[in-house]
Design a protein around this nucleic acid. Sequence first.
DNA 1: GGGTAGCTGCTCAAGGCCAA
DNA 2: TTGGCCTTGAGCAGCTACCC
Length: 364
Amino acid sequence: MTDEPGLLQDADAIERAFGGENRNRLLDLYFQTPDREEVSPATAWRHVYRLLLWSDPTTGLAHCYESDKSQPGKAWYSRSLAFHDWACTELGTAPAGLAQEIDWLFIKACADLASAMLRREARLTQAAGKQRDGYDGRGFPEPGADPELAAIIRGAIAGYLVKDPPEEIWHEVTQKVRQYLAVQNKRKNLVGEGFEDVLAQTVRRACKVPQDQVFTRSLLYEIPGFNRAKSGGKENKVDVAIVRPSMRTIVTAKWSVRADREKQFPTEYEEYCNAESANQKFQYVFVTNEFDPARLMRACEVLFRNNLMFDHVVHINTNGIRAAYGELPADGGRATDSRRRVIEHIDSGRLISLERWLTTLSTQ
DNA sequence: GGGTAGCTGCTCAAGGCCAA
DNA sequence: TTGGCCTTGAGCAGCTACCC
C-alpha cells in the first residue's frame, strides 16, 4: 500500500478485480500500451477479440458457441475448428498460440484478483486461527482440504511418483485446481458489463467521440433527450448510449443471447420510445458476438409496431460467422435454412460488422 | 450520537444443462 | 436445434451491530 492518492485509488479498484472501476483501469492500460495497434473502425474488432474472446478449456479452441455443443464429434466442433482457424489467420497467430493472444482482460483481472486474495488470506488465516482455538487435536477438517480430489490426482499420477508428497503439498495442489475451476465462472462479469465497457472505449477511440458523449449503464433519464419512463416500474439502465448533436444511439450489448433474454428487447424499446422527449429520431442498435443462427436471425427480423425494431444488428465480425458456418448444402433442412438466412442478412447489409457500424458512426 | 464494518437480499449477466 | 430454467458470482442498497 502507498500514500499516493492515485495509487491508493488503484489499490481500492483492484480489491474488486472484476468490478467496473478496475475493468476501466485495465482497459486504459491496454490501449495505452506502447506499440498497441491503432484503434480504428477497421481494427476495432481485433481489439475486442484480443480483450474478450477466450479459449474454451474443454476443446482448446476459440469459444464461439456453448461448450456442451462444441465437444468433439458434435456439430459445433467443426464450426469451432473453422472459427479458430479463421481467428488465427486474421490475428496472425499459430493455432496453438491463439489462447495467449486473446483473453487479455480476463488474464489481467485474474492477476489482480490473485494479489487481492493474497492480502485477504493473510488477514483471514489469522482470524481463522483464533476461531479454531479450542478445537485443536480433535481431528477437525482442515479448511480447504479436499481428500477426494487429492485421491483422484494421486490415482492418475501414482505410477510416476518416486514418493508420496506430504499433505501440505496435496492441499496446495487441490486448492490451485479448485481456484482454476472457480475463476472460469468470473468470466461472466467480463462478457457482461465488460463487453459494454470495451464497446464504449472502442467507440470513443475509433470514432473520436468525446468521453462525455458516450454513456455506459446510465439511467434512461440521465441521457439527454429522454424523460423518466412512465411505466412506474423499475428504472432500466441503458447498456451504452452515444449522444451527439446529429444522432442519439442507444445500444443493447450482449456478448451472447438466450431465447428468454430476447423478450426484454421490445419492452425496453417501448420504454425508450415513451421516454423520448426531444421529438427527434434515435437509433436502437444491437451489438453481439452471438453465433447461433436462430438467435441472430430473430434479432435481424424482430418487428416493433410493424417496423424493424433494431436500426442496426451488429456482429463483432461477420466474416467470423461466415467462416464458422462454412459451405452450406442446398437442402440441409431447418438448421441449415437458418444459417442461410443469416448469411443472406449479412449479404443484404441487415447484419453488419462492428467495422461497418463504427464507420457509419464516424460519418454521422 | 456518529462512523464504520458486516450482513442480507436483490438484481443482473451469461454459461451450463436438460427436455421437447 | 431450440427454449427455458438453473447456477454462479458480481455490485449495490439498506439495515443492524458495534466501537469510539
